[in-house]
Nucleic acid binder design. Structure first.
Lengths: 118, 118
DNA sequence: TCTTGACCTAGAGTTGGCTCTAGATTATAT
DNA sequence: ATATAATCTAGAGCCAACTCTAGGTCAAGA
């Protein structure tokens, strides 16, 4: 599969695919006549990345996660650590946004009342 | 009040104060011997900015909001619009993060189980 | 007088995750 | 032979909201 097909298949941009490779998220793609030729395994790797990415991990954490993943089951705890750290971050982001939302609702209410008073 | 005192009082950095001024969020601060001298009104304006900022508005939206604010009660609806748009954004961010969190919990569960199996 | 510390400016750098640009190469269709 | 489309590279640009840098001014204290 060439890069354009992979991009379409995975719903990523071509630039993003090259970017992930440059960042070392995936190993260097084999090239034929200077053009990337993605193997099934490459695609599987990319799908896995998108999967952990959907847990909200940064590319940096994804890279760390993959490194541990390659090292096998001895690193399960390390991988769990990454996910739990991410959970903590997400929980506090949600809490913060919820508080902002409450405040915003309060403000909107005030404005609506003032509008009624006019 | 000089800039350092204001920064301490409002818990902002000096750079941020100058930045807000440069961005046109607040009017130009009066200078004495080339140094900013903040009036009580300047501080009140800044507090108001921080107040709407805590509703999660971008600086761009804050600026728009302030512009309407100055124009008086005729712009109440316009201001409400800004706040409601922000509410919509916040709600969908929370929802999205909640979904990511659910997925993350699911992943962590899987990993914990695998750990138990080992 | 000299040093310290707070302030000044314009403009560059930071962050993450892309996205775009310019110029080159290659394969395919006419 | 040539036009088109897809690919390649290195490196710049984008976004927001700051943050930092370099080099300069200024007033007060020892």
């Amino acid at each position: 599969m060439n890069i354009g097909e992979v991009a379409k298949e995975l719903n990523l941009s071509i630039d993003t695919l090259r970017y992930y490779e440059k960042m070392g998220l995936i190993k260097e793609i084999n090239k034929v006549n200077g053009k990337r030729e993605y193997s099934e395994e490459n695609i599987k790797d990319l799908r896995f990345i998108l999967c952990i990415k959907s847990a909200g991990l940064s590319l940096k954490d994804i890279k760390k996660f993959l490194k541990y993943y390659e090292q096998g089951d001895d690193t399960l705890d390390l991988r769990i650590n990454i996910l739990e750290k991410q959970r903590t971050i997400l929980e506090s982001e949600i809490k913060e946004k919820q508080e902002i939302l409450n405040y915003l609702n309060y403000k909107i209410d005030l404005y609506e009342k003032r509008k009624g008073d006019k």
